[in-house]
Structure formats: C-alpha cells, structure tokens
Simulated scan of single mutants.
Amino acid sequence: MSTSMTNDVPAVRVQGVTRIFAARKGSGVTALDDVSLTVAPGEFVSLIGPSGCGKSTLLRLVADLDVPTSGSIEVFGKPARQARIDQDYGIAFQQAGLLPWRTVAGNIELPLELHGVGKAARRARAAELIALVGLADFASHYPDQLSGGMQQRVAIARSLAESPSLLLMDEPFGALDEMTRERMQNELVRICAETQAAVVFVTHSIPEAVFLSNRVVVMSPRPGRIRSIVSVGLGEMSGRGEDLREDEGFFHALSQVRELLHGDEAGINPTGVRGVETR
C-alpha cells in the first residue's frame, strides 16, 4: 500500500512526453507531442479537449498502462512503473467494471484481497469506504441491484481501497444522466476533501472540469499539446457546495475554458485570455 507522500515531491511530473502510435503505412499517429505537466500533492487537475486530443492517452501513460515514445513520467518521484507496483494510485474509468458475482463489499475488497490483506482488515476497510461513499445500506447488494450512480460510487470506493495518494479518473461520470452526474461531482468533492488525494481527471464537460478542479488543462486537437492551463480559483474542496455553480467566479472560469477550447474557431488568440497560465 502507498505510504504518505511529502508535499515537496509532485504527485505527477510529466516532462517532454510524446506518444506516437505505429501505423502499417506512413509515420504513425502522434497522439501527444512534447507534453509537460506537474500536479501537486492534493491538487485536482482536469484534462479537457476535443475528442482524440490525447487526454486518455496521457492518463494511461501516468498509470503505466502504456509507455511514452519519448519523455519521462514520475509519480511521487518514482518512475510510473514503480508507482504502479507500489500501488500509489487508484484508477476509475467511465464503466464501473464491477464483478457481477461480488457484492458491493466484495468488489471494494477485491484489490486488498489480491494483495494479500487479511479478511478482518479487508472487511474493516470496505466498511469504512462504503460509509465514505454513502452506501452503508447497500454493502450486501450486487451490482445489478444498483443504479448507475451507485455503481460508480462503488468503483470510486474500490479505487480508494489501498489508500492511494493519487486518483486517476477517465470520464467516470460520462455515462450518467445530468442530475446524477452533478450529485456524483458533489460526492467526489466531499471525498477528495476527506482523503486529500491528488486527482488527474479526464472529462469532456467544461462545467464538470471547472466545478471539480484547482486547475483545468486545455489540450489542442491532435497531436495533443497543452494549449493553456486555467487556474480556477474557487477555493478549497471542503468549501465547494451546490451553490458554487451559481457563483460569478464559476461562470468566469467557464468562459475562460470555453474560449480556449473554441478560440481557433472564433478567431480568438487562445493564449491571450486573461487569468490563464500558458505553458
């Protein structure tokens, strides 16, 4: 299991990463081109951009589910592969991926079971996480007895089972209806405030990225590059509630991200938006 990380070591450091996928003919497809990004411990960073811009590819590289063609990736000062071996991060995808023959508790216990944690410790940790995600009455239910939002709560709880200092999330709410999606965003804000885990979050939704994040990384169409980074500035996770969606600062950040995403189409210089970090 992961150990506590010091605040002076970045949760994620991506330096000059390029990923080229080989093609049968020609020079291949460049999914990412010279991407550099640092994520601080406890920071929530969203990746947003048009389809095919390399958001999910970047997340997979950080997770050591793929390897860069060039450049380097460190997670808490370690190569990505070592961080995976040390279970320093948890992963949640768009599909909850729960095992249908296991109960809620059984699904959450799975990563602990795979790593040899004893039965009593597994049960205690699962109970703690079930309470954290608000499913205390559903511990013995099976996935087909749960709504889509509840299944995603189980998946998030499972990703937290080994107390990771980093969560990697690839559109975990993308398949949910809008009302459920907003409730899950509120839930994730609460969970992040309690666990203090850093998060790298892939999304296509501008409001979702702004509501959840300390910074929003706006990516360009393929080959994926970082166009700009918007510092959202909406305060600590513990203070973010439903009323934030009506806040003037929220709408200001929405406009910044929207202009960066659509600036080329509107003839706007995307790096000229006020209040934006360019890298």
Rank of each mutant, 00 (worst) to 15 (best):
L110R: 02
F250V: 08
D86Y: 12
W101I: 09
S56W: 05
G241T: 14
P207W: 11
D247H: 15
A124L: 13
D34P: 11
D86W: 10
E187S: 10
V232P: 06
Q15W: 06
G42N: 04
M237S: 08
L99I: 14
E242F: 13
R181N: 02
G97M: 03
S213K: 01
P111C: 04
A96D: 01
L168K: 03
L114N: 10
M169R: 06
S255F: 14
A96I: 05
H141Y: 13
Q256L: 14
L110W: 05
V14Q: 00
S4C: 05
L261S: 02
R125L: 08
M5N: 06
S36M: 10
S163I: 05
D88H: 03
E171N: 05
N214W: 02
R222L: 07
R222C: 09
P223M: 10
R24T: 12
M184Y: 00
R279C: 07
L59H: 07
T103W: 06
L65C: 10
I206V: 15
V14A: 03
E182A: 14
G241V: 14
R123N: 11
P143L: 11
F173N: 01
E187T: 14
L168C: 06
Q145W: 06
H115W: 12
A136V: 08
A193N: 09
D243S: 15
F138K: 12
T271R: 15
L166C: 13
V14S: 04
T195R: 04
A120C: 11
R125D: 00
L234Y: 12
S36N: 11
F211C: 06
R190L: 03
S140L: 13
